[in-house]
Design a binder for these strands. Sequence first.
RNA 1: GCUCGAAUGGUGGAAUGGUAGACACGAAGGACUUAAAAUCCUUUGGCCAGAAAUGGCCGUGCGAGUUCGAGUCUCGCUUCGAGCACCA
Length: 945
Amino acid sequence: MEYNFRDIEKKWQTTWATEQTYHVEPNPGKPKFYVLNMFPYPSGAGLHVGHPLGYIASDIYARYKRSQGFNVLNPMGYDAYGLPAEQYAIQTGQHPAVTTEQNIARYREQLDKIGFCFDWQREVRTCDPKYYHWTQWAFARMFNSFYCNRCQQAKPIEHLVKRLSERGTEGLDVAQTEELHFTAEEWNAMTEAEQLQVLMNYRIAYLGETMVNWCPQLGTVLANDEVVDGVSERGGFPVVQKKMKQWCLRVSAYAQRLLDGLDTIDWTDSLKETQRNWIGRSEGTEMQFSVKDSDVKFTIFTTRADTIFGVTFMVLAPESELVAQLTTEAQKAEVEAYLEATKKRTERERIADRRVTGVFSGSYAINPFTGQEIPVWISDYVLAGYGTGAIMAVPAHDSRDYAFARHFNLPVIPLIEGADVSEESFDAKEGTVMNSPREGVTALDGFCLNGLSVKEAIAATKKFVTEHNLGRVKVNFRLRDAIFSRQRYWGEPFPVYYKEGQPHLIPEECLPLELPEVSKFLPTETGEPPLGNAARWAWDEQARCVVDNAAIDHTRVFPLELSTMPGFAGSSAYYLRYMDPQNDQALVSTEADAYWQQVDLYIGGSEHATGHLIYSRFWNKFLFDLGVSCKEEPFAKLVNQGMIQGRSNFVYRIKNTNTFVSLGLKDQYDVTPLHVDVNIVQNDLLDLEAFKAWRPEYASAEFILEDGKYVCGWAVEKMSKSMFNVVNPDMIVEKYGADTLRLYEMFLGPINQSKPWDSNGIDGCFRFLRKAWGLFYPKNAGWAVTDEAPTRENLKTLHKLIKKVTEDIEEFSYNTAVPAFMIAVGELAQQKCSSRAVLEPLVVLLAPFAPHICEELWHSLGHEGTVCDARWPEFDEQYLKEDSVTLSVSFNGKTRFTLDFAADASKQDIEAAALQSPQAQKYLEGKQVVKVIVVPGRIVNIVVK
RNA sequence: GCUCGAAUGGUGGAAUGGUAGACACGAAGGACUUAAAAUCCUUUGGCCAGAAAUGGCCGUGCGAGUUCGAGUCUCGCUUCGAGCACCA
């Protein structure tokens, strides 16, 4: 019987769907295993062969775990909010919900064809009100929480309110936007609106006036990770800095926990490193400087407190509030001109053009250690958002300060013995300190660092600064709070309305607050976000429902928030929702969460390292603090699948003709390489007829062939329509079947490695499946499996395979597991094995990789149910033992010949036999044996002189 | 600039410090066939010697080192990829 993959795959996909084979429920009697893929954004282009790579890898693992007796949760859903659908809506007027729905249907159809064991009953969509109910709910909880630094935990805002009313900010150690100081009396004297305003300083979800990345073309703000090289990640439009009132999430409060948590999870080092970079912990010192002839004092942050004696100027960020305070009358005009000029430069220009710019403020700071006067400058190389927005500049030991000092002719004082600072600064934190203080300079309390190493000097300075109350030791993080508003339509609405200028939450029981219909998806004439076009977008506080805008009276009916949430909102806790997707009382029930706990295996791309993977860790930690999630980290193990790149093909057209020349001959002509659709090229040979039919202008094409063939050139590029190198999984499935596609995607290379899609090798996987099928249904014969006892050889092949496949799956080394199957099937075919005792375990082993064919064979073997529930075979060491072993014999490390020994031969026996073997005599002639190394089972190395 | 990772035939890629190139593709030759497709068999890192069996030498980006023995470990480079980047 032929291997008819079309019938087989259709049959089992239908059966799995109708019988809900992969639906799971918590089962306390069984250990759980939670496998998760990063859910896709359903784009209009559909899936290409790169998308399923991770899904197949996790599907194999899920099926394997199920076979091992685990209750496996393997859900799938859609990250359905996003810019492309909205941009498309703006262009076509099509409602994003409609296009999203269509795209999802297409994705589902494509996914179904590949035979995944997803539990579709648990599907979630971020744009579904039943889903975003809980996104809004989490936001509301963040709004109503603050972060206590002392207990390192989020707490209800009422606790803070109570404390403020009792003791004010005295001794308060909480995460905050800026350090406020007031007494209990002052707090109690505030109006409600004033109190609410103050609380914004502490809330985990807060409305903050911050510099944001504003993208005029997209009409929205973007998060830092959505801006790449100064342009928007989506669309590549310019991004400018703009001060706006925005919802923010106080992610920075969790910086230390986000950093520490990395040590507890099984992620790749490179990904952890990326997150460590992004969090950017830096331990340093804050020091206070007073200003000459002024009451103003300001604080700077430095990691090199030891260089205090080398400070020759101070620098303020242009946006710093100190600029106004420190600019003298004489410098005012110049400073203002400079501020104006910097404002105009976009971030991109600043990155592209790093010329040194700056202006003198006119003021002088006083070095607290020496009393020396130091000029205060303003320059955009100092960032307002990091540290205190002010620095002490030590040109001798900081390259940026050095560049600035050289440009404006400021003095450079070297502080490290032997450091040559005539050409460049000496930035390394090493060497022996000198000039600290210089001769003739007296330092406060006789403080002296000379002769110490840099490390010692840093420690000594920190101690001194703390003791003399000149500042404090401080840890700074680069991680910024996440900007959480987007001026877009297609996103989760905020459950917020504005009363007396202050945001108020709509009550939790009124959630979800559904996204309203709008007349158009563009910003309003007055520049408000698209939700400003909604006619019915106001909150009636008494009726507790959404009403027409016309009803707004600011006493009972109030306007609702017009921004929506960003893309990462919906994807931050979806793994929790999968545990309990239908629950309308809670994001996830305590029971469901207690059973499924956390994701055991998460598979997805590393491009989310500083976006989704940070946000969802933050989000989950917050929910952990609330007691909603029982685990602090959401994803115990993470495997990054590599990107599948495109493999483009080229034809070479002779210039000004319609003649195409084959690759090998192209150098003889003046040619233009042109992309050609990879789907009409096979093994780099062009299908000439298909090419002529591909485009009208090629209908009359002529060819110069080599050996009667047209050979195309190729290159690895991004998979994209414009390169004509997109390979669609449905086409592969149509031609070879899903099982072949699955095997081939795994066979292509290590899962975590980026690699080009090359359809050339796919035949090998198809042939393998046909061969495997042939063991059960040989050609020109019926069913071949018998109850015959397996031979020792059969069992050896089988157990070798069990061992290899089990190990490979555990290590995600699928690309080596597939060849193991090929070898085993080859061996069994040669052995003419028909024994059920061997073939049945083979089916179970192969099932995770090629579920359809294995399901069919499993049923042919007379079983019910699904092959995934069959017990995973265990290997038995005894079958792997050999009667004899072949050892290679080498002389001075160079292998010369092999010898067979009994499996239990002793080292001495092996050594003696090797030395006495006739083959060895040739190499021993005239030589002296120095020593013999015997590694049992491996090698005999004879060292001769 | 800093951090992390990679480099092996024509191609994708295998190799607990122990016979480098598994397996697959491609290529060449052969069988079957009227023919083609499909299938099966053989060869396939390079160079040299030989009629052949076979034998020899060289080979894992480059240069050192450790070791009886290095693709694998250490150090120094080169190239490519990824992340961060005026973060004080």
